[in-house]
Design a protein around this nucleic acid. Structure first.
Lengths: 235, 235
DNA sequence: AAACCGTTGTCAATGCCTTGGACTAAGGTG
DNA sequence: CACCTTAGTCCAAGGCATTGACAACGGTTT
């Protein structure tokens, strides 16, 4: 190609935002394994070490990516016909994000970022619980448990999807291998083998969500009015 | 000091079991970050590359560690006074494992291993759900969702605990920083700030578990007889 | 306009890491 | 006792994050 190889970048080209954006692009394309400083440098058309002029460490960059990703989701816009529906929407949205962008999800989901995007999302979710009649403290408690559940499950799948194809293959065949467990030694597993081996992650998530929502409703001071309640406990 | 530096190991010293055991020791001592082939070699008193005579890759070793860790937990021995209590016991045991041995948990929790230890644990848990009156298929479904929840939440905390002290510090101070969010812009967060910033992981886990258990009970064909039911929904 | 200077991009080096290939000693088999 | 497979060892290749020295850029001062 015509690139003269080594032109120095003009001064203001790099800043925290462009670097974070490039990181997200890179994570979407190459996954977490492909997210290295050399690769990021290539994505930016800059020297890898240039990033260190804007972030003290890779870890600090990860925290910034975390907040950007949360902000991008625009959680406050997710509102259902009642508060329970809102929770379901938020949970499904998060889950789906992990399926669509496993690299970004796997990298960020276990980090907390005390930044605007995170605050806005937290505020909204706490507000949703307050709609259910929880007082502020209880809403805060519910928020943390609910978010932990969402992020943890979504991240777990994301981490799996982010594995290199070879390891992923191995993991999937492992799951299928549940079918081959000796039904004499493992009678319960034997009886359920087909179901366990066949079920998709999303079915499993939906059931978990259904349990959780049922639990939340049972604890809620106010019921959810006019809910359509799209969770189906068991298939 | 007195080690003559380069004595070659006798022939049968290394095998899959000793390597897995050394790996677990290493993970407990140094965490996931300290779990490298050179370190494993040192732990074994062998050359790092010797491991490759017994495992095709580091990833294959990780899967073997996964199963060993599961087997070590002896899940089938966890039985409460009724099936719901058994579930609570299993969940708490898993959670506690992630707190005690974060390195091992963080490394393994998102991998499936089609091996004996895993089969035995799966069989037991499916059996517990059948005690609740679920048919084999539904028990299989519940099993997957329940296990996903447990492992995901336990692993998430483990991953955090496994961070290097510096990054962990940053994350914790970030959590505390929720207190400093502008209550004008984030009213709900402001009202619950103290609770959100103060709550411990375990309190959050317990509440999540309470929701889940409530949901499970609501779906169960048979109630739990004589349960003491140690989950407390809200503090 | 020339000299100055802090900022930001580049380069090279360090010290980790996984993995694979060539080498070699050990111990069982004929 | 010679032989040969196996299992440990050594070393090199290529990747990674991070850092310190250097250099160009652009704004400021005189």
């Amino acid at each position: 190609m015509a690139t003269p190889r080594k032109r120095r970048l003009p001064r203001g080209t790099l800043d925290r935002d462009t670097i974070v954006a490039a990181s997200l692009r890179l994570l979407d394309e190459k996954g977490m394994r492909g997210f290295s400083m050399p690769a990021l440098g290539r994505e930016l058309g800059a020297d890898p070490s240039a990033v260190y002029r804007h972030f003290a460490s890779k870890d600090e960059l990860v925290l910034a990516i975390t907040d950007a990703l949360i902000a991008e989701q625009d959680v406050p816009s997710l509102r259902g016909s009642c508060w329970i529906e809102s929770l379901i929407l938020i949970a499904r949205h998060t889950w789906e994000l992990g399926g669509r962008r496993p690299g970004a999800m796997a990298l960020t989901a276990s980090r907390t970022a005390a930044m605007p995007g995170t605050f806005a999302a937290a505020d909204h979710i706490i507000g949703v619980f307050r709609e259910g009649g929880f007082d502020a403290d209880d809403a805060g408690r519910m928020y943390r448990s609910f978010v932990d559940f969402m992020l943890a499950t979504a991240q777990q799948r994301a981490a799996l999807l982010d594995l290199d194809p070879e390891a992923l293959e191995l993991d999937l065949s492992n799951e299928a291998a549940f079918r081959s467990a000796d039904p004499r030694r493992y009678p319960n597993l034997g009886a359920a083998a087909e179901t366990v081996a066949t079920r998709t992650w999303t079915e499993s998530f939906e059931l978990g969500l259904a349990m959780l929502i049922t639990g939340i409703e049972a604890m809620a001071p106010k019921p959810c009015r006019g809910h359509t309640h799209s969770v189906r406990p068991l298939a």
